[in-house]
Computed example of a mutant assay.
Amino acid sequence: MNAGEGFFAPAGACRLPAGRWRDGRLEHATELVADEVPVALVYNGISHAVMLASPRDLEDFALGFSLGERIVDDAREIHDLEVEEAAQGIAIEMRIASGAMMRLKETRRARIGKTGCGLCGVESLACFDDEACAAQAQGGEARFDPEALQRAMAGMAARQDLHHATGAVHAAGWADGSGELLCVREDVGRHNALDKLVGALARARFDSADGFAVVTSRASFEMVQKAARAGFPMLAAISAPTALAVQLAERAGLTLAGFVRGGRHVVYSHPQRLAVESG
């Protein structure tokens, strides 16, 4: 079944006219397409970043982004948060603690978010190395059954209503030690999906170290960085990692698994959390 055929339009999707070529014929149809809008993150009246994102779960996104970029150290430093429609997109207005705002002013830099990769505007190679060293995973000596990875990844499909409708978004999920998914968030950008997950867990007051993160994308440097900063002990990706991501995961104490699908996976760092005898 094609995206849009027989599907209701979930939040974050819209119907657009299209021409569908099938069995040698052109048919006029409507297709469900994922929404992608500019979202401005505004702190105490100052616009800090503009990200391209799916217009759903934006409160989670704002909190997760703020924590992941270390704009705030704790959710309680955000005193007020409002999502407002704007002429060109959406503005998320946040009022943050004075200490957090002072730190933000010291480090503020202009950036434009994209659905691809980037280094979030670090100013030099030295700054980049400092950023890499700052990420530290939590979870101590947490152990996970390898089957929990497979169970969590297999369960992701049933929780991705926006992807089922449009075929155009990524998802990030959080599973407990048994692999049961307790929270899933979707977005056109894989980084955004992980930010939304981090924000959702913080709002619900879950301890991210009590489970692990699964993502329906590759594991890039920034995905590992966000996972480590959020305190996940393990990140499991359906696709491959990059070499830089593996190096960061090793330094940060994060267990990184890739190609988690079809009953198989590859562990690239800190395999002790998946304690089984090698075969």
Rank of each mutant, 00 (worst) to 15 (best):
I46S: 07
A213P: 11
W21R: 09
G24Y: 07
A228S: 15
F7P: 00
T166E: 04
G64F: 05
A62T: 04
A240L: 14
L197E: 02
R15Q: 10
P233D: 06
H163I: 00
L58Q: 08
A202M: 02
R108T: 02
G113L: 10
Q225S: 15
E147Y: 05
A34W: 04
C14R: 14
F8T: 12
V224A: 12
H164F: 08
A275T: 04
A148F: 11
G12V: 09
D130W: 07
S54C: 03
T115P: 00
M51H: 15
A252S: 15
G173L: 07
L197C: 05
R261N: 13
V72C: 11
R76F: 06
D176N: 15
A168T: 02
P271V: 04
E77D: 13
F206C: 13
A236Q: 04
S278M: 02
V198P: 02
S124F: 06
R261H: 14
T242V: 03
M101P: 00
A91V: 11
D23Q: 14
L104A: 12
L235R: 10
L16E: 13
A202V: 08
E222F: 00
A86P: 00
E93A: 12
I238H: 08
Q272S: 13
Y43S: 03
A11E: 15
V215N: 07
L26V: 14
I46D: 10
R205F: 04
H270R: 15
D161N: 12
A53N: 05
E31S: 08
Y268P: 04
T166D: 02
R273F: 07
A240W: 05
H164M: 11
L149K: 01
R70E: 14
S278H: 06
R111C: 06
F259C: 12
M101C: 03
M234V: 14
I46W: 05
Q247N: 12
G118W: 05
A34L: 09
R109E: 06
R20A: 12
V83Q: 02
A236K: 01
A9S: 13
G4A: 04
D57V: 00
A213Y: 08
S239G: 02
E186C: 04
F206T: 07
C127F: 11
E106C: 09
M234A: 15
S178L: 11
P55M: 07
A142W: 01
G113W: 06
A91G: 01
G64M: 04
A87C: 02
F61I: 03
S217I: 02
F8D: 14
L201T: 05
A240M: 12
A200L: 06
A227W: 02
V224I: 07
A134S: 15
R264Q: 13
S269T: 13
A209C: 04
G99N: 08
A91E: 13
S66P: 10
L256N: 07
N2V: 11
A49I: 10
A137F: 08
I90N: 05
F65M: 08
G68K: 01
G89S: 09
D74M: 01
D35I: 00
V214E: 01
G24D: 06
P10Q: 03
S220K: 07
P233C: 09
P233S: 05
C120F: 14
A158H: 08
R159I: 00
A213W: 03
D161I: 07
D207E: 13
D187G: 05
A135K: 01
R56K: 09
A29H: 01
E123V: 14
D207N: 15
A209I: 05
R25F: 08
A275Y: 07
